[in-house]
């Protein structure tokens, strides 16, 4: 029993990182109907920013986690530049073009980081010194709880923002009807840029939680993490903010359970099997709504 609960806690830890990453995917998809495969690489960019800036913060006598604010600025900058330079010119040329462009940008960022930072893994200094919580014989690391709390807070803020603010309402209007949005006075390009800025800012927060839990980063971290988070977003229902959260947590728990109770080497196969099954059986995911193609 203790083993099960411990695994569950570990699963929640992994899952909450997937969830934070999936939030960025789903946010961009929900507004622009585009899978931003470079999202995972934004997290890698955030990771390297933290790696280089935490020592600077400490030297200046500031708390280490202040580096996150700089990481947010760097990620937003990289995200908005990616959108302006790569995605905007191909907008309106079909979803396949957008998808391939996103994959291309992911490779550009991954290999750009290889040139800049090399291929050796780096250890990001710790930002938080949180006590673990012991429940009976089970210990839950403080970072797990922090990651979960941050994930839930982000989810709630995003949901409220999209539902109740004017900007959020414009963000819902744009994917529904670009013509009507323009006619009522929404600058569609501006809304898309803002969406990328928010998605990239979320990537910086995800990079903070990733490095807190897993310490080691390298230029390739975005690809794997991004793909997993993509599966999580699809499982939860891509475009749905609560769906990303639920899909992320579920996927994390499933992966750990497979590792502990089944063949440890097969957990990634299970992840992608889930992706295939969801796409076959329920492409709209757990929380997504059915999209009727307009004729």
């Amino acid at each position: 029993m203790a083993k099960f609960i411990q695994s569950l806690a570990n699963g929640l830890n992994l899952g909450s990182i997937y969830a934070l990453t999936a939030l960025g995917y789903t946010m961009v998809y929900g507004i622009i109907r585009m899978i931003n495969f470079a999202h995972g690489d934004f997290i890698m960019v955030g990771g390297f920013t933290l790696f280089y800036l935490i020592p600077v913060m400490l030297k200046m006598g500031l708390p280490a986690w202040f580096a996150v604010f700089v990481a947010i600025i760097v990620c937003v900058f990289v995200g908005v530049m990616t959108e302006q330079i790569a995605y905007k010119p191909v907008r309106g040329q079909g979803s396949t073009t957008a998808l391939i462009t996103a994959l291309g940008m992911s490779l550009v960022l991954e290999n750009g980081a290889l040139v800049l930072f090399g291929s050796a893994p780096r250890n990001v200094p710790p930002m938080f010194n949180l006590p673990a919580v012991a429940i009976g014989s089970v210990t839950i690391p403080g970072t797990t709880i922090l990651t979960l709390v941050i994930g839930i807070v982000m989810m709630l803020l995003l949901t409220l923002f999209i539902k109740y603010t004017k900007l959020g309402r414009a963000m819902r209007a744009v994917p529904e009807d670009k013509i009507a949005s323009t006619l009522v006075g929404i600058n569609v390009n501006k809304i898309i840029t803002i969406t990328f800025a928010i998605g990239s800012g979320l990537a910086a927060v995800a990079s903070m939680m990733y490095t807190t839990s897993y310490v080691s980063i390298k230029n390739e971290l975005g690809i794997t993490l991004g793909l997993k988070a993509f599966v999580a977003a699809v499982l939860g229902g891509i475009g749905s903010v609560p769906g990303a959260m639920i899909g992320g947590l579920l996927l994390g728990i499933i992966e750990i359970m497979v590792k502990v109770y089944m063949l440890p080497g097969t957990y990634e196969a299970v992840t992608y099997l889930i992706l295939i099954l969801v796409l076959l059986v329920r492409p709209s995911g757990l929380m997504g709504k059915k999209v009727n193609e307009k004729v």
Binding site: R172, E176, D177, I179, A180, T182, L183, G185, V188
Partner: peptide, 21 residues
């Protein structure tokens, strides 16, 4: 997106209401 601020409104063909709102 600024046209409407000049007092020019456009009701497009096919209504284009926001169906999910």
């Amino acid at each position: 997106s600024k046209i409407i601020t000049h007092g020019v409104a456009h009701v497009p063909e096919g209504r284009h209401v926001f169906v999910d709102m």
